[in-house]
Computed example of a mutant assay.
Amino acid sequence: MELRQLQYFVKVARKQHVTQAAEELHVAQSAVSRQIHQLEEELGVQLFVQKGRNLQLTSVGKLFLCRVEGILTDLDRAVDEVHEFLDPERGEIRIGFPHSLGINLLPTVVASFRKHYPNVKFRLRQGTYNSLIRDVMKGEIDLAFISPFPEKHNHVVGEVLLEEELYAIVPEGHALSGNESIKLDQLSGESFVMFSEEYSLRAIVLEACSKAGFTPQIGFEGEETDTIRGLVAAGMGVSLLPEMALKEINELQPVKVRVTEPVVTRSIGLIRRNGEKLPPVAEVFRKFLIDFFEKKAAWA
């Protein structure tokens, strides 16, 4: 069964006339008749009966028409979606991000991009470090913000967009809350509120504490920056969070203190599949992001 046969069948069914259908299709009448005949032979049924000068659908022909119209509509929609997906002015960008970048960075860059390309759509997926790399590798998303940036990876490549400083956060009234800066080892005896093991920020904090000469005591674990921040503000411990995760002001707000020894930072990058071209709209967005962060080096 060929697509042309289905298209010819629908046209004849709507016109109830082979000649008129052929005229609209810009093909010979014999070609339309031949395709309809071949379709009926393949199906083993009669789709039309002659009634005067017109053709009428048989009962099975009406049933078949209902299904075929649905199939052709879905096919047309799929073709339109493909063209839209590839259109830099109107396409869809599939992008992943970790929770810590979804609070401020992602809305900011998407809003800025849409000022130039208002018809572009975004399909967003939140994930952890490993899940974002996996989703890019599997082709489920085109791009992903990620932290830390994977310097060497066989299946994904990309660019570092910025380096962001991590601050110590402590409850109000804490002995260190009035300090402008601290050394990280001053928190060595504290209970830490830490990200769960699958989150890359946990590894960054653990490595920084190791450089400072201690292993943090973990009292609470969470999966979102809002949770970490809220628990610290409520007096459940201390932690380290990226600066952009501390921009939003809530009723429960910890005190942030700069860490000077060692200075703790994380790299934030953009990754894509290695060896594959991005869809045009995603490539436009990638170049926009590189330019955006080059112009706003002090964005965070």
Rank of each mutant, 00 (worst) to 15 (best):
L124D: 13
Q217R: 15
F113Q: 01
L161N: 12
A78C: 00
E251K: 06
W299N: 06
E180M: 03
K11T: 15
T227R: 07
L252R: 03
F9Q: 14
K277V: 10
A13D: 01
N274Y: 08
P279D: 05
V27C: 13
L63D: 12
L63P: 00
E81A: 08
L55D: 07
S191D: 05
G139L: 05
Q56G: 02
K115D: 08
L55M: 10
L6N: 05
K211T: 05
G127F: 12
Q7N: 10
R77C: 00
T265I: 11
A175H: 08
E40M: 09
K183T: 06
Q7F: 06
G173M: 04
H116V: 09
G230S: 15
T227N: 01
L86G: 12
E41F: 00
L25Y: 06
S112G: 06
L105T: 15
D142S: 12
R94H: 06
H37C: 00
R90A: 13
F292C: 00
K296L: 14
L278R: 10
V82L: 14
E261F: 03
L143W: 13
A13Q: 02
Q35I: 04
V257M: 03
P280K: 13
Q16L: 03
I95F: 01
E140R: 14
H26D: 11
P148A: 06
E283M: 09
V170W: 07
I71D: 02
V238S: 09
F292E: 04
Q186D: 00
D74N: 03
Q35W: 10
A233V: 05
L252A: 07
G269C: 04
E243I: 02
D226C: 03
D80N: 08
L3M: 10
D185Q: 02
E294S: 04
L246W: 08
G127N: 11
H174R: 01
R114F: 04
F122Q: 13
L132Q: 11
V110W: 08
L47H: 11
V232R: 02
R134C: 08
G178C: 02
E283F: 08
A13K: 03
E172V: 11
P280M: 13
P148C: 08
S239Y: 07
T73K: 09
R114P: 04
V157N: 10
I228E: 04
I146M: 05
S147I: 03
V49S: 07
L101N: 03
Q35K: 14
Q50N: 07
D80A: 14
Y167S: 05
G102E: 01
L176K: 04
Y117T: 12
S100N: 07
E224G: 09
V156Q: 06
L278E: 10
D185L: 00
G139Y: 13
Y117F: 09
K211G: 01
T215M: 08
L47Y: 09
V263T: 12
S33E: 14
A203R: 09
E223W: 07
Q7V: 12
